[in-house]
């Protein structure tokens, strides 16, 4: 664990990404203490520019942008965490079942992965919103479904690589049950690549959530999501450019931070790139 951390820290882009990601996660976690009420309307102070009182200015209802952006980070992080957790666990279960199980189990799972994979993410998400209806909970389920096959395929490929490894056969000879082999010996050994994929998926999830919320299909007003902030900002772009500027900045920064961090994590865990044990 500490070697992975020091590996990330040693690369300058990794360190940059890690610091930014920690800052974003921290500000999201402590948003209620760092900033005021994101929904306090102040109609006399609409479209204000940055000031000591409102660091990032205010929006069309005079709400504090800084507070809304921090609370937006909260939503982005919550969605990213929930989506990654669901997609990772479901993808791992299905991928391991496909890789380790008999052909009758493998086939339908692979077909499911192919179906989910063959749709472009956003269009698939739009179709699902049409069925499930808008809302953050649905966004989580939808985005989890679209990224899940990625985890599933990696999990299956890793299991296939391990399936005939002598150490699994050795456990069978000792009498270990299939469940024991899978949970104690297979999953810990495929965790590395899956964590890497999780790290790489976070920026994509943030973008998809923002996109859906921008279209009004995710977070619903007055909830402050970066997507809704952008949407409102565009609506009133002629009055003030600050909301679009800060929300866009934040989205870009978060995506960049998690991408850099994810790449450093991949370099740290992927044994092909790793220099020394």
């Amino acid at each position: 664990m500490s070697t992975i951390f020091s590996h990330i820290w040693r690369s300058s882009t990794g360190r940059f990404g890690l610091i930014l990601a920690v800052a974003i996660i921290g500000s999201a976690a402590f948003a209620p203490w760092l900033a005021g009420d994101p929904n306090r309307i102040d109609v006399f102070n609409r479209f204000a520019g940055p000031s000591w009182q409102h660091w990032m200015g205010t929006d069309h209802l005079g709400r504090d942008l800084f507070s809304r952006i921090l609370h937006g980070a909260r939503i982005a992080m919550e969605v990213a965490a929930a989506v990654t957790a669901i997609a990772l666990s479901l993808g791992t279960v299905l991928g391991v079942a496909a890789g380790y199980g008999p052909r009758q189990v493998e086939r339908p799972i692979l077909i499911l992965f192919d179906i989910l994979y063959s749709f472009p993410n956003l269009i698939f998400a739009l179709a699902l919103v049409a069925i499930l209806g808008p809302g953050l909970d649905n966004v989580v389920i939808i985005v989890a479904m679209t990224v899940m096959p990625h985890f599933g395929r990696i999990a299956r490929a890793q299991v296939l690589r391990l399936k005939h490894a002598p150490f699994l056969e050795a456990e069978r000879v000792l009498g270990a049950s299939t469940a024991r082999i899978v949970f104690r010996h297979v999953i810990p050994n495929i965790a590395g690549p899956l964590i890497v994929v999780a790290g790489m998926e976070v920026p994509a999830v943030i973008t998809i959530e923002a996109g859906l919320s921008f279209l009004g299909l995710g977070a619903r007003p007055p909830l402050a999501s970066w997507g809704t902030l952008l949407h409102d900002g565009y609506t009133y772009l002629s009055q003030s450019g600050w909301p679009v500027f800060f929300a866009g900045m934040m989205l870009t920064t978060a995506t960049l931070a998690f991408t850099l961090f994810g790449e450093a994590l991949r370099d740290a865990i992927d044994p092909r790139l790793r220099m020394d044990p």
């Binding site: 050795a170 456990e171 050994n189």
Partner: peptide, 10 residues
């Protein structure tokens, strides 16, 4: 096993 090292769960 022949390859004892790789027969130990890593």
């Amino acid at each position: 096993f022949q390859d004892a090292a790789s027969s130990l769960s890593p």
